[in-house]
Nucleic acid binder design. Structure first.
Lengths: 197, 197
DNA sequence: GTCTATAAGCAGATAGAC
DNA sequence: GTCTATCTGCTTATAGAC
């Protein structure tokens, strides 16, 4: 039997943790926004805040992965898909008034040295996203190592662009990156073809 | 008259905030590592934690800027300088056992929506770093807008590579980016020459 | 300028009634 | 399964002695 009180907790926590961070988000705030009492939270998540954060992070990771796969599936080329994804993120940031749920960098940087469970979850998520990018590049008949490097580059660029856009309270970095992405990710690059010569 | 108790506070706070984050770092931890009593902290920083964080961030920003300028000055080309800087960051991370002081992304993401003073300081810092990159690119006779885009790209890539390396507890992303940077930042790129055609 | 004792409030977590 | 009252410890900050 599936209750959905638990899902409400996860959704609320997912959003709050991603936008404010793990330490800045209190259990009380999650309870208030979930319209639920404290007891039921500890019923569903006996290990408390850490367990809730872990499950919330998995949910965020799933959502991000799905969004990327969707946009790549609709696009006519991987490059266009990546550009559209960056614009999608920018629109989401604007629409949600800079409270989106598009990045796990904050949680990753907050916990990498203090919480091994959550750190591993973040590492897994980054790898999962990178693999999605890599698979799309492989369809372009790129050398595997080169595809992998470009995929890692896309993860770095996307996370960096989100960080800059949020800090500036302006989505210009995301838009500019989307517009000029062909200058960076150049499939006809001779250097790239000789990548692992 | 210059005491240096204040400087000790700033150095300690600078390191703790950058590595653990603003909310995870308590005043008590700063006091303990500074070997100083609580009274003197509030004597030097009457506005408490927020003021200390702001001054610590300025110190971190200064240090990062100086390091980039140094490495660029010694390198024979901007591209080599950027590669060496990435390697320098990787070495610092390894040497300091993943407790370096090389990024402001964590503080930026933690505070962009909750603390306007610190957010502005972060925005200023990102812009300052981008300007250093831009000036080095301009020496290569690039179009100004293209130089500016490449500089922004370098900020994104560097912050992204640090985030990935810390999360993985492995500096491979930083090293791989350094090795393959010429594939991305390509001054002979025809597209780049036509940037703002 | 330096230091300690303490305030006031909030955090995460729990016990136990219903 | 749901809810509330409460515990313990930690947080930032302050008052005031020296």
């Amino acid at each position: 039997m599936k209750t959905n009180t638990k899902d409400i907790f996860i959704d609320t926590a997912s959003s709050l943790f991603a936008n404010q961070g793990y330490h800045a988000t209190g259990i009380s705030e999650i309870l208030k926004k979930s319209n639920a009492p404290k007891g039921s939270l500890y019923y569903y998540f006996p290990q408390g805040k850490e367990q809730l954060a872990q499950e919330a992070l998995q949910k965020t990771a799933e959502k991000i992965s799905t969004e990327i796969l969707d946009v790549l599936a609709k696009a006519s080329t991987p490059l266009e898909g990546l550009q559209q994804h960056l614009i999608y993120i920018a629109q989401k940031i604007e629409k949600d008034l800079f409270q989106p749920n598009v990045s796990i960098s904050l949680i990753a940087l907050e916990t990498f040295s203090s919480n091994e469970i959550i750190r591993l979850e973040c590492e897994r998520t980054f790898q999962q996203i990178q693999n999605i990018y890599k698979n799309s590049f492989l369809k372009m008949d790129l050398h595997e190592e080169y595809a992998n490097f470009l995929a890692m580059t896309m993860v770095m660029l996307t996370e960096g662009a989100i960080t800059l856009s949020l800090t500036k309270k302006n989505t210009q970095p995301l838009h500019q990156l989307a517009n000029n992405l062909p200058l960076l990710i150049n499939f006809n690059n001779l250097l790239g073809e000789n990548y692992a010569k």
